[in-house]
Amino acid sequence: MTPSKPLRIAVLGTHSTGKTTLLKRIEMELRGHGLTAARTGRLGKRAAAAGLPKMQHHTAQSTEWIMAQGVLDEITAAAQGAEVILIDRAALDAVAYFEAAMAFRSETPPRLERERLLTLASTQLPKYDLLFATVLDETVPVDTSHDYDAGFRRLVDDRMHRLLANNVIPHQRVTSDPDSQAHAVDIAVQRCLKEELV
């Protein structure tokens, strides 16, 4: 691996399905093997801090901001010499949230706007060396400090997996099962170590 082409591992999925925890575990393992890893994230909170709507209030504008900021974070991490970039919320994630928000509000996204956002997200897909998609398990309790709408959370999960399937995007599904989580960490670490040896 060279600093000009870091390995990129991205994750997407509805909220509170273990995305950040998974990436933290991968990061710790990689650091244990002496690899420099950078983790992106907190895009929803940063969008809200910038005055943009989030969750079920997402708009095309907030969706585009999240994708653009995520790309900027990746470029910054690469410029700073990260060997591995761990992307908390792949670009397609933002499109799924947008579609779910529109469905939640019983609105139909303008066709050209949806296509434009999908095109923007699709330009990022070839950069991901690994893509993990978390799977919603409603039996796992969520952090009670968050005011999540259960219906919206399901909509995001549905749109996420539908987008992946309809566009035949290669990815690894990760469930809440500890074995599934451990397997995902192992896949990521082995891929990074293999790339390092090439």
Rank of each mutant, 00 (worst) to 15 (best):
L164C: 07
L163V: 10
G13Y: 02
K19G: 06
T76Y: 13
I87A: 08
Q181R: 15
Q69W: 00
L193T: 06
L136K: 08
A91C: 14
T134K: 08
R31H: 11
R116W: 13
V185G: 10
A188V: 01
D186K: 15
D179T: 07
A150I: 04
A82V: 04
A48K: 13
D93G: 07
N167P: 00
T175H: 11
G44Y: 06
E113W: 00
A68S: 10
M28L: 14
L120F: 12
A150K: 06
G32I: 10
L23K: 05
Q124C: 13
T59H: 03
A38I: 01
Q61A: 15
I9M: 08
L193H: 13
Y97D: 05
V95R: 03
H33G: 01
A77N: 09
M1C: 00
G51V: 02
A10D: 12
E113N: 03
Y97M: 01
L22T: 13
E113D: 14
I187G: 13
E64H: 09
I169K: 04
T36A: 14
A96W: 01
A48G: 00
L72Q: 15
L130G: 09
H171V: 06
A101G: 15
L35M: 14
G13T: 02
R25K: 14
L164I: 13
D73H: 11
D137L: 03
T76H: 12
L35W: 09
I26G: 07
G44P: 06
A82M: 06
I187F: 09
A77L: 10
I85Q: 06
R153W: 02
E138W: 05
T123L: 15
G32E: 11
L52D: 09
P110W: 03
E138N: 13
V140T: 05
V174Q: 11
L52N: 08
G70I: 01
R173V: 05
W65D: 12
L130D: 10
L155D: 01
R105P: 00
A68G: 04
S106P: 00
P170T: 08
Y128S: 10
D129L: 00
M1D: 03
